[in-house]
Design a protein around this nucleic acid. Sequence first.
RNA 1: AGGCGCGUAGCUCAGUGGGAGAGCACUACCUUGACACGGUAGGGGUCGGCGGUUCAAUCCCGCCCGCGCCUACCA
Length: 745
Amino acid sequence: MNWDVQSQTVLSDLEVESEENAQGELFDFAYPVEGGGEIVVSTTRPETMLGDTAIAVHPDDPRYMHLHGKHALHPFVDRKVKIITDAVLVDPKFGTGAVKVTPAHDWNDFATGKRHKLEEINILRKDGTLNENAGPFQGQDRFAARKAVKAKLEELGLARGSKVHALTLPRSQRSGTVVEPIISTQWYVRMKPLAEPAIAAVEQGKTTIVPEHWNKTYFHWMRDIQDWCISRQLWWGHPIPAWYCNACEHTHVAQQAPSKCDKCGGALRQDEDVLDTWFSSALWPFSTLGWPDKTPDLARFYPTDDLETGYDILFFWVARMMMMGIHFMGEVPFRRVLLSGLVTDERGDKMSKVKGNVIDPLDVIQGATLDDLLAKAKNNGAKDSGLDYLRKTYPEGFAAYGADAMRFTLLSYSPQTTKIALSIKRIEGYRNFANKLWNAARYVLMNLEGSGVQATQVRPDAHCFANRFILSRLATTILTVHLSIDEYRLDEASLALYHFVWQDFCDWYLELSKALLQSGDSAIVAETRAVLMHVLETSLRLLHPMMPFITEEIWQRIAKTEALQRTIMLAPYPEGGRDGLTDETVEREMAVLQAVIVATRAIRSERDIHPRLTLPLTLRCDDVPLRALVTREQEAIASLCKATVSVEALAGSAPVDNSATSVTEGVTLVVPLAGLVDDGKERERVERQLQKLEKDLQAIDKKLGNAGFVDRAPAEVVHKERERKAELEHSCVQLREALTKLKAT
RNA sequence: AGGCGCGUAGCUCAGUGGGAGAGCACUACCUUGACACGGUAGGGGUCGGCGGUUCAAUCCCGCCCGCGCCUACCA
């Protein structure tokens, strides 16, 4: 058994954690051999020598041939220690090649003891002090006894030196103390028969683990499974259903307490121990639903669809629920297991009360001062270093970021990451997102005031470019969200919504809508209002599972038709269908307009032209559909660039003195700026743009000059490269012309 | 020791066999009637290293280096 002397309970293998590379000491000492001579053994736990009942050597080791079958004399207790040969336990190359054997306090020695029928002498009491078998060391704590034993061996001249030794220390997950192997009688569950069907269930796809790569870990553990010690010496838990006869010690195991001993009729006492909490937890999928009664709940919810949890309890809980579920219910408890990463602190360290780095979600949601954080950590037993970490990392404590930001942040991490290093900065970013959504809603509601427009959850028809654009982007987003959710990629779904709301809706559409709302054309205004309402309302429904509070709050403020539900919680989640209608043409056209607008703003920014000044912008283009597009949407461009826009053909157009030029998407932008022009700066800007394009062009030329590429790559790939080349060449020509012009002036 | 996974911008991380991305941080300008928890424009990466497959590799394969986790062992 693994014994935790602090909690004074048995632990299962899974509850023992390894401390790697602990600094230990390998201590050598000599046992005097009966009839003369000595044999030197090594140990990292000198106190265990009090329980030694043998010394093992390798049967073929020539150094010890003469000692086979002899006895050593124990220096502290009246005991002869047999010298045995054992090829399993002993590695003749390690240390002295002679191993002290303590069957009662070491896993390997226990097995050796069984092979050689050695006496098992327990030297430990439950609290970690030594018992009466320890002779003169009785009553000492295990670590004090270690020192005392060493000192006494030195005194007797039996110490043979020591060296530092790195070892892995088994520590209790519960208390952190070093775990002691002891011999004790406890209840175990034989795991092989339970594991086999649980392995088969995953192999046959009855239960799927997501992400899939955890299958390997699951199988690896299940196939190499150890029996499970389920007794715990704790006051909290399910009592073990075992009864012992006071008279004859016969053991009874039953669902109902037996009244007297089956064998002798004597009085019974129940086992004082309780079941491992994980044993009880393993029953959770059905024990919570009324099992063993066949309740309607059990029929309805067993098996369930999805279980979501951290990968760190795949064995503790998931695997055991699988085994118990299959055993007791005859069926797997869930169809899918979704494993997420472990939430850690910002450094990536596992949260622990002792380290003081446990982040209480409520503090993040409601806000907390540094003092609040320190008080809570201290109360949970944090060490000073942990408190220092808090002081250093959160000098201002937490602002109140809200439950929506917290939830959205957790959703934004990829499911395949093993570590979720919860960053306050990231939470703050999503808090800002919630604020952005709130302000966008304010804008929409403000512009709908008194209009009588109601949310209908029916996609309005739209003719205006901007309205068609946002409806198409909404449709694309709905499709992306559905695809992502179907693949359990909530990170992708949340990212798609974040980008849609912030970029498409706020940065582009709301800005475009301003011109439409002020157009004075009542048909356009009505259409725009309907679209604003529809997109906002649909976005809220899309976001609701990820940001339940703010979406409900806004939704309640929206005017709605009678037919709609009272709460967004009951509103249908947006589906493809009519709302999933994307419009590739409008999205492609928008890409052109966006490029033109961004290029114009870049000119403004590079030239330090104040945002309040209106730019005179001329767009030149020979491509007829393209020119038609920018002509049709010149008011939109004007609005977003704060410019007056004119459009003309490129061919035959007159050069403009003192102007800034840019080329994008086949459109040449000219901004005449008499009096404001700094030719040097402009030349730099154009040269930089030209250089970039020429570099791209070079790469494409190299590719197209490669016969292997042209011959063997798919035709559409080659075609695409040729198109790009033409486009780049055109742009370069325009820029070179602009450069010549600048140099000439 | 065995198994699994990871090395991509200063940080945290997405991603793909054919033009390197996001958020934060950073720089400049801007308090414009939704929003400064904001807007606009920028800078920043030999995609860990070396080979191989391929017309083409950040992506596929092999080896190496570094890191993390799990399992086992450690007198």
